[in-house]
């Protein structure tokens, strides 16, 4: 376990502590290089690219946007609900959200 945690601490974007999941999602969905992905997400969130790894900025913003936070805030969107908000925010479709929509249609 020391290895992945060391990488995250040294170089990572901290996942949903900040906005690492969003940048990674743009890389994985649209093959964006890291700079392009950061620019895209920063623009959508109306923050600077540095803010994307800043827990102070992202903590409140994530809660406001309902895109999932690291602590178990009661009533805050989690799982698929949070990802449905991410879809709208980043202007993309997420497979499990599509499946969920079909199930409740």
């Amino acid at each position: 376990m020391g290895m992945p945690i060391s990488h995250i601490m040294t170089s990572g974007m901290s996942g949903i502590r900040a906005a690492g999941d969003l940048v990674a999602r743009m890389q994985l969905s649209k093959s964006m290089r890291v700079g392009e992905a950061k620019d895209y997400v920063a623009k959508k969130l109306d923050v600077t690219t540095d803010d994307l790894s800043d827990e102070y900025v992202m903590r409140e913003l994530r809660e406001d946007l309902g895109i999932g936070v690291i602590t178990s805030v009661a009533g805050a969107p989690k799982g698929i609900a949070a990802k449905m908000n991410i879809e709208k925010l980043l202007d993309l479709n997420i497979n499990c959200c599509d499946k969920f929509r079909k199930q409740i249609a």
């Binding site: 992945p4 060391s6 040294t10 170089s11 990572g12 974007m13 890291v34 690219t49 540095d50 790894s53």
Partner: peptide
């Protein structure tokens, strides 16, 4: 003991082998 990237240069860290690590 530990070093870190310059602030602003962070990159996504993806995971292979996943949950098996635990």
């Amino acid at each position: 003991r530990m070093v870190g990237v310059e602030q602003g240069m962070e990159v996504p860290v993806t995971h292979d082998i996943g949950t098996i690590r635990i």
